[in-house]
Design a protein around this nucleic acid. Structure first.
Length: 258
DNA sequence: ATGGCGACGCTCCGTCGA
């Protein structure tokens, strides 16, 4: 069972890369963030043609999330207790698999910069709500994968230059503490269950030759409930996509569950 | 040493992202 997440930075701009990824990597479930279009504008037919079911929670211009799945899914749009949010940042699916139900969320957590503004307060409020919801999911004792662009650098080893990012909303102590609060509930960060290595990144800015200089950060994560973590076999960052033509500034990260 | 991008839209600049 292969589950991937990818911030595509506009699904319409990335359609060629997305369909190539579905063909070559063929994840069973792919969570997308920053689709940047309304549901009606999502290139649904091109994806369905490749054998995927498509569920979107889009909006015009900004944000927008989706879940693609080889098997049929039932979805809920919006983060529970945060449904009034006009920003489309959360969609959750129950996926039928041959090993029973699997729950997968596609999350686009707010960036939060600049930290002294209401944007950071919004990020923290979203995280509080996500923590509460994640706790309620644990009570179901199901395999759950909370996947997405968390806009959180968990630790110094996850950023090329920790000092340069010290005051950034992605790396502030309060941000990292909230992320740790989430994992402390009982979720396993998939990548960190497989390696302690530093310098594993999922995002490189388009500016200042960040990719060429490997000035990256690790902000896209897969969080696993105990029932999912027990089945974890491997984690892969599809870094090669950043070197290809017209890339997203994020690359996919995926895990294999037995 | 500095700055260097890219997507979007009531589009040719201003805003946003990370």
């Amino acid at each position: 069972m292969r589950i991937a997440t990818w911030n595509v930075n506009s699904v319409r701009q990335r359609l060629e890369q997305l369909t190539a990824y579905l063909r070559e990597v063929a994840p069973d479930v792919l969570c997308l963030q920053e689709i940047k279009c309304e549901d009606a504008a999502f290139p649904r037919l091109e994806i369905e043609e490749l054998g995927y079911n498509v569920e979107t929670h889009g909006q015009k211009t900004f944000n927008g999330v989706a879940i693609l799945s080889k098997t049929p899914i039932e979805v809920v749009r919006g983060l529970p207790k945060f449904e009034h949010d006009p920003q489309a940042r959360y969609i959750e699916a129950v996926v039928s698999t041959d090993r029973g139900a699997l729950r997968v969320a596609s999350i686009y957590l707010p960036n939060g910069n600049p930290p002294e503004t209401e944007k950071y307060a919004y990020k923290l409020a979203f995280m509080d709500c996500l923590i509460a919801h994640a706790a309620s999911l644990l009570a179901l004792e199901e395999p759950v994968v909370l996947a997405g662009d968390y806009n959180v650098i968990p630790a110094a080893r996850d950023v090329h230059d920790p000092a340069a990012w010290a005051g950034d909303a992605l790396f502030l102590p309060q941000t990292r503490a909230k992320f740790q609060e989430l994992t402390n509930l009982g979720y396993t960060e998939a990548l960190r269950a497989t390696t302690d290595a530093a310098g594993l990144y999922t995002f490189w800015d388009y500016q200042a030759g960040a990719w060429q200089r490997n000035k990256g950060i690790r902000i896209d994560h897969l969080l696993l409930s105990p029932q999912a973590a027990d089945r974890l076999q491997s984690v892969t960052i599809d870094k090669n996509l950043r070197a290809g033509a017209k890339p997203s500034d994020h690359v996919p990260i995926r895990c294999e569950l037995e």
